[in-house]
Simulated scan of single mutants.
Amino acid sequence: MTNKQTTLIIKDRATGKTTQLLYTSATTQYPIIVQNHSQVKLLLDKANDLDLIIPVPMTVEECKNKYGMNYDHVLIDEGYNLIGEALDAYMGTHVVAVTLTDRVKEFADKKVVRL
């Protein structure tokens, strides 16, 4: 097991999660992984609208099959299904439920209290 940190970007719909991921991809040149090819096209169109140069996004299957490339780091857009599948594979059983604490909100709340 590794201790590499993963950042969860948890926000309401239409609040800039994908845009934030596109800027992260442009800065780091890490590819974005999505569920299907229509999402790949949407990301490429949005990156173009924002004048961002990003690696070509890949579907989950393309990433799993390595698609001729090997990346040490990837970004995932709308990852709920993938998280479930990954946990099932890791645990060797179906994971029915997972709880997550919104650490960003928790940190912000603590910061407000300290002021």
Rank of each mutant, 00 (worst) to 15 (best):
D72W: 00
H73L: 02
L52S: 06
E62I: 01
E106P: 01
P57M: 02
I53K: 14
T99E: 14
L50E: 11
V60F: 04
L44S: 07
K46M: 09
L42W: 00
N65P: 01
N81Q: 13
Y67C: 09
K41L: 04
A47V: 05
N48P: 00
D45Q: 10
L87W: 12
E85P: 08
L43A: 01
A89F: 13
G79Q: 01
P57G: 02
L100H: 11
M58N: 08
L52Y: 04
V95F: 07
H94N: 13
D49V: 02
I83A: 11
A89R: 15
E62F: 04
D72C: 03
T99D: 14
V96A: 13
V74P: 02
K46S: 08
K64F: 08
D72V: 02
M58D: 05
P55M: 05
D102K: 06
H94C: 12
D88Q: 14
I54W: 10
L50P: 06
D45I: 04
S38K: 06
A86M: 14
D102P: 04
V74E: 02
K41Q: 13
E62Y: 02
L75N: 04
E85T: 13
D88Y: 07
P55T: 06
T59V: 05
L82H: 06
D51V: 02
L82K: 08
K105R: 11
A47W: 03
D72I: 02
M91A: 13
Y67G: 03
D77L: 00
D77I: 00
L75G: 01
L50V: 09
Y90I: 11
T93G: 08
Q39A: 10
V96N: 15
V96Q: 14
D51I: 01
N48W: 05
K41N: 11
V56A: 08
M69R: 14
V56P: 03
L52D: 08
H73I: 01
D49M: 05
T93H: 13
A97E: 15
D49A: 11
Y67V: 08
I76P: 00
D51P: 00
D51M: 03
V56N: 09
V104R: 15
G68M: 06
E85M: 13
